[in-house]
């Protein structure tokens, strides 16, 4: 099996790695680069815990090959805060207790960031359908939806 040399950008930083052709971006992030914020809940694109943003598109990193990241921009949960300054979504997830166990949280934060980038004033229904690709088994989603609503208000400066 021939390794693939990849140059990419992750959270604004240039990164180079060698990966196997069948290795997923999730495996690269977690096992090669130590970025364990993205989680593997299923490995088949059904839970969203591994969500990252790839060139401005929300994707499951378990359904992207590491080799495909060549020349592209990857955003992960580790890049959401600026130093000590949390992203409004991170802050609102804390304030609303929008997490219990927290395993789905990185995926939700990334998906919500993508959602608000495309729709800064989503309705409750738009939030619910926009986040339907992310499974949470603890919260019943109530507090997640409220946290996203509140973060959207904050980000709009309302």
């Amino acid at each position: 099996m021939a390794g693939v040399a990849v140059s990419t950008t992750i959270n604004g930083d240039s990164v180079e790695y060698l990966c196997q052709p069948d290795e997923t971006l999730l495996e690269v992030l977690r096992d090669r680069l130590g970025l364990t914020g993205a989680k593997e809940g299923c490995g088949t694109g059904d839970c969203g815990a591994c969500s990252v943003i790839l060139d401005g598109r929300l994707v499951c990193s378990c359904l992207v090959l590491g080799a495909e990241a060549e020349g592209r921009q990857v955003e992960t949960v580790e890049g959401m805060a600026h130093g000590e300054q949390l992203h409004p979504l991170q802050q609102k997830f804390l304030e609303h207790a929008a997490l219990q166990c927290g395993i789905c949280t990185p995926g939700f934060l990334i998906a919500a960031k993508d959602l608000l980038a495309k729709n800064p004033s989503p309705t409750e229904e738009e939030i619910r359908f926009g986040l339907a690709g992310n499974l949470c088994r603890c919260t019943g989603y109530d507090k997640i939806v409220r946290a996203v609503q509140d973060a959207a208000n904050m980000m709009r400066g309302a």
């Binding site: 977690r30 364990t36 989680k39 997830f93 304030e95 949280t105």
Partner: peptide, 21 residues
């Protein structure tokens, strides 16, 4: 009262370490 949980910040920044981390 309803303060922010002590383990919260690690969980929203991706730093919290779970079984596979």
């Amino acid at each position: 009262t309803r303060p922010i949980r002590p383990d919260g910040i690690d969980k929203v920044t991706g730093r919290a370490r779970y079984g596979a981390d």
